[in-house]
Amino acid sequence: METQLVLDKWPGVISTVVIGAKKEESGSRSNIVTIGGQSSLPLLFKEGAIPNKPRVAFEVWDIVPQDWHNELLSAYGEEINDPLGWAQKCVNEFKAEILYVRMQGAHPDFGDRSPEDSAKFISTLLDKVKVPLIITGSGDNTKDNLVMPLVSEAAKNERCIIGSAVQDNYKTIVASVLADGHSIIAESPIDINIAKQLNILISDMGLPLERIVMDPTIGALGYGLEYAYSIMERARLAALSGDKTLASPFICFVGQEAWRAKEAKGSIEQGIMWETITASSFIQSGADLLVMRHPKAIEKVSNFIETLFRG
């Protein structure tokens, strides 16, 4: 007897988020990236529509990273010493279709760059590279609340994804994102209840649920990957069952977690492998955007995505 696949039909659908705006939409990006829109669990192509592939963003900073693995830094050559050159190298040489920019230089302990200078950095970056941007602050709430409104305004109408809103600090950033036409990253600490609550709080301020991307907070392989995996799976099941407050695409900061692992620091090959395996696992738990660091790991993961979607 032939084996019959048991297929579920879901009433819900993940929202579609477009990143980047071209000239005709008053932006200046040369390409746009669309994520989300699934009506199926990850990679179950026969169950429902999966209109968009997971996408990989190259991570760049506005300063030279001080705590990155030396061999990871050397993958970008001389250009790592000039953040704008680094970003251009990602696009020109490594064919990045989307960049993630962390405004680490604004952190009080990492240079304390002024909000005005941070905004200027983004304006220049938008001139130098034409791919869509994801931008977050440095993680220092007080400073981010001063920096991100100006950064958001500098990128007005470019339809970036701006982050990160957290449960006890979301109002300033939501207001900016709303005013400047971006989408937002809603970050929760591996906690589905807080993820849902934060999405509601954000949408109560008038930003539609369709402009939220959820950062569930992940752990690398061996460091809690399965916790994040199960949270994402549960959120996806609820969303596909019709819970709109959890039907946002996921962004996973794979690079920062994978390269923190003790194993990744051992040898560069092992580091690349750690980042690759962490990313490919999250593709299977429903990640829509993967933020990664090493060009070789990104290449491997991009090839993996192509293979999965070749059908």
Binding site: I192, K196, Q197, I200, D243, K244
Partner: peptide, 15 residues
């Protein structure tokens, strides 16, 4: 049947 959050009543009504 639904995932908890503090605003679960509102969340249900947003469906």
């Amino acid at each position: 049947k639904n995932i908890f959050c503090d605003s679960y009543l509102e969340a249900y009504r947003k469906k």
